[in-house]
Design a protein around this nucleic acid. Structure first.
Lengths: 200, 200
DNA sequence: CCTACCGATCGGTAGG
DNA sequence: CCTACCGATCGGTAGG
């Protein structure tokens, strides 16, 4: 029954990757070791490695799964809003809420992965940089549309707004994870309301 | 000559710690391995470990040295300004400049260490959390003084301003380290000028 | 400060 | 998917 077998293989791989995302968000992409992950999912190192080839491929698989989860938990919650200020505000709220809901057990996967890998050249770093650049563009595009229709003033620029939103998310994640300060999301929302105020 | 010997020991230790700070800012506090550091400074593992006892003590020594460097490169550049808005603005400028000057080879030591260690209980995490809390307090204290004398409006609150400044620094460090975006410090300064504008 | 060594774990391979 | 194994490296210790 080759068909059944292929499905099982895909399901096993899915379970490995899901576990890997959780481990990586807590212990980092380097803390994600093959032996430990094999124990966690209950199989041998070589059996696990068979699905990916090497550790770097496993890290990339975890990163892509984390991106997919982010899309579902942040972008999809806002995607139906009208492009421009409504969608930008919905994205910002979903983004803060994603931290508050602790979508990843170790806090924002991308904040942690970025700080860990920013000095480690290679495909993982490249994929991280590209994906975060695209995200900043997504934010700036809605900010620009909001400015075009007059929902936001022309200054600060769209790129500036995206940059500042990114900073608020970092600060919130940091306050939640390091200081266990549950007041951080409220501060983020207050800052967002000044930065990109609702249309009147 | 016991005295000369004691000085040499202190000098050796100083060199080890200085090297450790650089390594940790690039590869993280866990990437700081005893064998590699011993190679870097040209001595044996056991000789190096003799100065600290174990790896955790070495990490704490590196963290404290990094704090000292931060004090010199950021706080001391602003400490002579008048408490309140003048000093807060000077601190913010020195803080952005500290990223721009690449005081640590791997970017902000504390941003990297925080994201790496925030889920790893122990003395290193505790020291990081305490030291960053104190820093936020330092910022908020000057913000409060600025509000008291009317140099800043009562809203946003002093704590909110400190939180947002911290976020701008994270975003700047991130844009410099991951995206190699040299425009980030200018964006940070623009945001700072809106957040805590110079007194008229 | 050194050499010599410990058990554990790392990423990965051979062979089935 | 497994067992069995590889060389390298981990943090750390014994003994000098």
């Amino acid at each position: 029954m080759p068909r059944r077998s292929r499905e099982d293989t895909a399901e096993t791989r899915r379970q490995i990757v899901e576990t890997a995302v959780g481990v990586a968000s807590v212990d980092g992409l380097e803390g994600l070791t093959i032996g430990r992950l094999a124990d966690d999912v209950g199989m041998s190192k070589s059996g696990l490695l068979n699905h990916f080839g090497n550790k770097e491929a496993l890290q990339l698989a975890a990163l892509r799964a984390a991106q997919q989860r982010f899309r579902v938990e942040v972008w999809h919650r806002a995607a139906d809003e009208a492009p421009g200020l409504p969608r930008l505000r919905a994205v910002a709220e979903a983004w803060v809420s994603y931290l508050e809901r602790r979508v990843f057990p170790g806090g924002c996967f991308f904040a942690a992965a970025t700080m860990e890998m920013d000095d480690q050249p290679g495909p993982v770093r490249d994929e991280l940089a590209e994906s975060m650049s695209r995200w900043l563009d997504t934010l700036a595009t809605d900010a620009r549309e909001a400015q075009r229709v007059g929902d936001l003033p022309p200054e600060p620029t769209a790129e500036q707004l995206a940059f500042e939103l990114q900073g608020l998310i970092f600060a919130t994640n940091w306050a939640l994870q390091l200081l266990h300060d549950d007041g951080a999301p409220a501060r983020a929302r207050a800052a967002i309301d000044r930065l990109i105020p609702p249309a009147v």
